[in-house]
Amino acid sequence: MVQQRTERRYRQASLTDSLTGIGNRRSFVEDSENMLRHCQVQHRPVTLLLCDMDNFKQLNDRHGHQSGDHALVAFCDVTIMRLRKGDIFGRLGGEEFACLLPDTTTEAAYQMAERIRKEFASCSRVAGVSLSISIGVASSAEAGYVLDSLIALADKGLYEAKGLGKNRSVISQPI
């Protein structure tokens, strides 16, 4: 019994980002792949939001890593308040996060991305610096139910958002 609890605690720790308390990359990938298989069988739409904090390196360089940590936690707090039960949220690494939204059309996901983006920009200041986030949106309708394909397509939208001046959400279209 004690050994089972210990193993459970270690497993949970291995799946949790220690700074933000949300799922880490491993957790996000495992949960998302399970969700995608389930949604594919049931022909349910799934949309991915790929989020990247704007000017994060400059924040860390100018104000220190503690300020960067505060910014990451603030983004997670805003995002968690907007997500629904059943949505999957994880930190992929650094200042990059992803949300997998089952039963969500591209337009509904875009609206959610915009709510997250606007709320984060309006309420988040760290070390006197206004913070913003860029978000790429990709749907199973365009990318299928393969996580790597969804991430690649959302990444295309994310880089388009960055190229258009940051602090925006872009729905990515397949090439």
Rank of each mutant, 00 (worst) to 15 (best):
S32C: 08
V46P: 10
R84D: 13
S134M: 04
A154N: 10
G93Q: 07
E114P: 08
V41N: 09
A71E: 02
H65Q: 10
D155Q: 01
N167T: 00
S122A: 12
S134F: 03
Y145R: 10
N167R: 00
T20G: 00
S18L: 07
I151C: 14
F75P: 02
G23T: 01
C39R: 03
L49C: 05
D103W: 08
L49D: 12
Y145W: 10
E114A: 04
L19D: 01
C39E: 08
Q111A: 09
Y110G: 15
R62D: 13
M81S: 12
T6P: 11
C99D: 04
T47N: 13
P102Y: 11
V78M: 03
F97W: 02
M1W: 12
Y159D: 09
F56Q: 03
V29Y: 12
Q111N: 10
K156E: 08
V46N: 10
M81E: 04
V170H: 02
E160F: 09
S149K: 13
Y110D: 06
H65R: 03
G144H: 11
G21T: 01
H63F: 05
G128M: 01
E96T: 04
R62F: 09
A108D: 15
D87I: 08
G136M: 03
K166G: 06
A109K: 04
Q12A: 10
F89G: 02
E96K: 01
V78H: 07
A141V: 06
Q111K: 15
I171Q: 12
Q66G: 13
Q3W: 09
Y159I: 14
Q58G: 09
L19N: 00
A121V: 01
A74K: 00
A121P: 01
P174I: 11
R5I: 09
R62W: 10
G157K: 08
H43G: 08
H38S: 14
S27M: 12
V41R: 05
K57G: 05
